[in-house]
Design a protein around this nucleic acid. Structure first.
Lengths: 234, 234
DNA sequence: CAGTGGTCTAGACCACGAG
DNA sequence: TCGTGGTCTAGACCACTGA
């Protein structure tokens, strides 16, 4: 009990509401009493009821609309929250020792497919950085990344031998918008070599595009070693 | 402006705080003024400041501790929220026409690997359901699922020819705990045939384990058709 | 111990949107 | 139009935890 004894907290209300939904007392799609009535029932203020119901709606159990009232969602829109850790943290969470290694870092004209992907002008230049992340001496992730020089001019002076491009970017342009995708790809000869896999092996792959105030900053492909799985509970 | 003119809303405060972090005015790891002081600065009550800061902490930008105060997280723990839609919704969101087809549905003794995975007793029985989800006539997802009969006895009477096992389960035991994983697997001959792929092709694969009040309910493997990617923005 | 965030109250005004 | 949720105020007590 977070609050002192015998008060009804918003947590209590959340529990009670969930229990009623689970028990079938409040059927999917059914309309719930309004906040004022619930406040009376729970002997608390409408503010407290409001917080409880608002959070339940955020969590995907309820749908609330002014005037229409609050309904139980028939198919709860449960959302999985995946925390996207930095590779270093991910390795260390596994109890491993993180090691980073730069493979190559070159400034080059942005390839056509990247221009299309990031809406770059045809003559824009990018820093192409390839690197490896190890768990001890085991390959953990191979990263292939392009950083738009016009958007982050300091990148030409970055020392990617000593710091990974992701960590460098987080320090340099911390607050960005991100589009993140996951897919299964096939190991080409390069990926296979870096991850110590047979060519053609399925590889769990992430793609991340990052913008800062609408300007494209970076495109990254992250190839995970065999057996990797991304897991969450909810 | 959600509130009437000239009041400071919790949204305004959130924006201002984020802007200060972005601009570097509030550096990572630095301590922010306490709520009371911010309330004075923003000419509003502490309640309003509290809501703004609480939400920013929920969203992974700040860390708050009683007595210690509120700090800017150096590596924002941005969390990707993936909405896990029902297959039907996912297909329809693509503008496609959803079609479901049952492949097989048999009650059987739980295989050993499943007993281990779900902590079943060796003699427990499961309903093994295999089915296909199509976008029009294109394979979209092949689903291989086991449902624990002791946990959901009604399953023996379910008509999986007319309703998918996931939709049936949502109707029957709506509120559950879930562990969800994604990985890249290799198409075996069966998966390859159902998804119309060459054998050995990489397949984006989901695994879902569901419990109800601690009792294991179901284990499902979901194999997605070629080219599938799971995407989110944040 | 004392400062900070966590939460509740009692009341108010308002925006939205269904009927 | 008018009921419902969205938000803010002003004030209070308390839980947690760092020093």
């Amino acid at each position: 009990m977070t609050q002192s004894n015998e008060t009804t907290s918003y947590r209590d209300i959340k529990e009670t509401v969930l229990a009623r939904i689970r028990s079938g007392e409040w059927q999917p799609d059914s309309l719930l009493p309004n906040e004022q009535d619930l406040a009376v029932e729970f002997s608390c203020t409408r503010t407290t009821v409001n917080r409880a119901m608002r959070e339940l709606a955020d969590e995907g159990f309820l749908e609330r609309r002014r005037k229409a009232g609050t309904r139980v969602l028939s198919a709860p829109q449960r959302q999985a929250r995946f925390t996207i850790p930095k590779v270093r943290d991910e390795v260390e969470a596994l109890g491993g020792i993180y090691r980073y290694a730069l493979v190559s870092s070159v400034a080059e004209r942005a390839p056509d497919w990247l221009c299309a992907r990031l809406a770059l002008k045809p003559d824009q230049h990018v820093m192409h950085v390839r690197c490896m992340h190890f768990n001890g001496n085991t390959p953990f992730q191979y990263e292939d990344r392009w950083i738009v020089i016009d958007s982050v001019p300091e990148v030409v002076n970055a020392d990617f031998a000593s710091i990974g491009p992701n960590e460098w970017l987080i320090q340099t342009v911390p607050f960005t918008n991100v589009e993140l995708s996951f897919l299964a790809s096939r190991a080409d000869d390069s990926v296979a070599a870096f991850l110590d896999l047979p060519i053609g092996e399925p590889v769990f792959t992430g793609e991340r595009i990052t913008w800062l105030e609408g300007e494209p900053v970076t495109f990254a492909k992250m190839y995970f070693a065999a057996g990797y799985r991304m897991t969450t509970q909810f």
